[in-house]
């Protein structure tokens, strides 16, 4: 192993790392918000909207992210949608993640007992107040573990964006590999870097989960 390669390539790799963090952060935020909106819309129980919701889920959960971003980036211009690689990357992660997060929210809402909501209505809470102060805080503790899981999957999937030339971490490592004919150094670095990011996310998730489930601690 030739560690001296990193003396030349650390600026490129660092830039890639920062870019990955940026693309993933924005992508995950879009997925979190988009998923919630998707789920709330699906709760309206209008047949037409239900059909749209199911179709969305079928498309984005039923096909590989690689195919989705490929179609968006290289196929988009044919139907008049021209987006930059960065835009497709962020949007791709966001739309793809939204489908998964919507289902995570659904399981979270379903886990709040009906009686807790009835008690709130009985005491005069509006629907919005019930959502904000009874349903959301209760489901938070339950959706954090699957939510973190999904976030980690999205971060790892973001490596796919190197295919459409998004200048992120994997692209940087591939550049290093092709320019130096080395394999072990760039890809081992890549593995460690992704591991470090997901490890950090998992730790933050654990901390959030502990905070959100203080009430579940038995005396």
């Amino acid at each position: 192993m030739d560690l001296s390669l990193f003396i030349t390539y650390w600026p490129i790799l660092l830039k890639g790392l920062i870019y990955t963090l940026y693309v993933c952060s924005v992508g995950v935020i879009i997925a979190l918000v988009g998923g919630l909106i998707l789920h709330l819309i699906s709760r309206l129980a209008v047949p037409f909207i239900d059909l749209l919701y199911t179709t969305y889920l079928t498309i984005f959960r039923g096909t590989p992210l690689l195919v989705q971003v490929y179609l968006m980036y290289y196929g988009g211009p044919f139907v008049g949608i021209e987006l930059s690689a960065e835009q497709v990357g962020i949007l791709g992660l966001g739309l793809y993640g939204s489908a998964y997060f919507a289902e995570i929210y659904r399981s979270g809402f379903a886990s709040v007992p009906k009686g807790h909501i009835e008690a709130a209505y009985d005491l005069g809470y509006s629907r919005r107040q019930t959502l904000v102060s009874i349903q959301l805080p209760q489901m938070l503790g339950l959706i954090i573990p699957p939510g973190i899981n999904q976030t980690i999957i999205l971060i790892k999937e973001s490596a796919i964006l190197s295919i459409i030339t998004v200048p992120e971490l994997t692209t940087a490592a591939v550049t290093m590999s092709t320019q130096t004919f080395s394999v072990i150094e760039p890809y081992l670095f890549l593995a460690v870097a992704y591991w470090a990011i997901t490890f950090l996310v998992a730790k933050i998730g654990q901390w959030c989960e502990n905070r959100a489930t203080v009430h579940l601690v038995r005396s």
Binding site: H116, A119, A120, D122, H215
Partner: peptide, 18 residues
Amino acid sequence: LSEVCMVFQQFNLWPHMN
């Protein structure tokens, strides 16, 4: 219903609040 209140069989306290 502002002057009517119900007490439930399952209590229905909100578990995330003390």
